[in-house]
Simulated assay, not measured.
Amino acid sequence: MKTQKKRSDCPVSFSLEAFGDKWSLLIVRDLMLHKKCTYGELAKSDEKIATNILAARLLSLEENGIIQKLEHPDSKAKVLYQLTQKGIDLIPIIVEINLWAEKYMEIPEKRKELVSQMNADKEGFIRNSINELKAAHIEKTK
């Protein structure tokens, strides 16, 4: 992992340097909540990220230790992306962002069920998400 020069010692500033651009948390969201794990799957996200931006953000997330690349079991030309423990530790942040957004904006119908689950049992949702990701990681490395 590359050592990055920090703008300041402020934890918010440091965190934003790691994942605070327009796209990085959306990539983390897709790896976390939508179980996407290949470049092609990530490129097909609703937000329509440009391929050059996707490649740059994946590299940045990898350099920051938030994701890692694994060999794809079915193709040498593909890789799998997965969250590291550092990335998994962003689950509570993603949950809080969703809950904040629900409070201040209209949530699309297709997202309401997920946010409702988060609202009903935030700690349980976080715990289950962590367990699911860890189980998926074990399965991918077999």
Rank of each mutant, 00 (worst) to 15 (best):
M1V: 14
K5M: 07
K6M: 13
K6L: 13
D9N: 11
P11I: 05
V12W: 08
S13V: 08
S15K: 14
W23T: 00
D30C: 06
D30W: 05
L31W: 06
C37H: 14
Y39D: 05
G40R: 14
L42D: 02
E47G: 01
K48C: 04
R57P: 00
N64M: 07
G65N: 03
I67R: 10
K69V: 09
E71T: 07
E71H: 06
H72S: 10
H72G: 06
D74K: 10
S75Y: 02
A77Y: 05
L80V: 07
L80S: 01
Y81P: 10
Q82P: 09
K86W: 02
K86R: 09
I88A: 06
D89A: 12
L90K: 06
I91G: 04
E96K: 14
E96G: 01
W100E: 07
K103E: 15
M105V: 03
P108H: 00
K110Y: 07
K110S: 08
R111L: 02
E113I: 01
E113D: 11
L114Y: 04
V115S: 00
S116I: 00
N119M: 05
K122G: 02
I126C: 05
S129Q: 08
S129C: 08
I130F: 10
N131I: 14
K134W: 08
K134A: 08
I138N: 06
T141Q: 15
K142T: 13
